[in-house]
Computed example of a mutant assay.
Amino acid sequence: MSQLKWFKSSFSEASGNNCVEVAATPDGVALRESDAPAEVLTTSRGALLSLIRGAKAGNVPSDGSDC
């Protein structure tokens, strides 16, 4: 995963140590926190898109319960 080109939001903190980074992979998408770059989560593009759409629509619970 070290050869991936990582991107972070322009809304991220100026110091760059408090953000989520995203990289395209051959099979989908990789995500990591900038303060823990060795811990990488991978998922499909479709699953990430569904999460983002759900969050924008307010359909992602913030209390830890299932959708």
Score class of each variant (00 low, 15 high):
Thr42Ala: 00
Leu51Cys: 05
Ala47Asp: 11
Glu21Lys: 09
Asp35Thr: 01
Ala24Pro: 01
Asp27Val: 14
Ala38Ser: 13
Leu48Trp: 00
Asp66Val: 11
Glu13Tyr: 08
Pro26Glu: 09
Gly64Arg: 06
Ala55Thr: 06
Val22Asp: 02
Pro26Trp: 07
Ser15Val: 12
Ser50Val: 05
Phe11Ala: 15
Gly54Asp: 11
Ser50Thr: 12
Phe11Asn: 13
Val60Gly: 05
Gln3Glu: 15
Gly46Thr: 07
Val60Glu: 06
Leu49Cys: 05
Thr43Gln: 00
Glu39Leu: 13
Trp6Tyr: 08
Asn17Ile: 06
Gly58Asn: 03
Ser12Pro: 00
Val60Asp: 02
Ser10Glu: 08
Ser9Leu: 12
Ser12Phe: 06
Ala57Lys: 09
Ser12Val: 12
Ser62Asn: 13
Ala57Glu: 10
Ser15Leu: 09
Gly46Phe: 00
Ala47Pro: 00
Glu39Tyr: 05
Ser62Pro: 00
Ser44Cys: 00
Asp27Tyr: 04
Glu13Cys: 07
Phe11Trp: 14
Ser9Tyr: 09
Glu21Met: 13
Trp6Glu: 06
Arg53His: 10
Glu13Asn: 15
Leu49Gln: 11
Gly58Val: 04
Glu39Arg: 12
Ile52Asp: 04
Lys56Ile: 00
Pro61Gln: 11
Arg53Cys: 12
Ala24His: 04
Glu13Met: 10
Ile52Pro: 02
Pro26Val: 10
Ala57Cys: 07
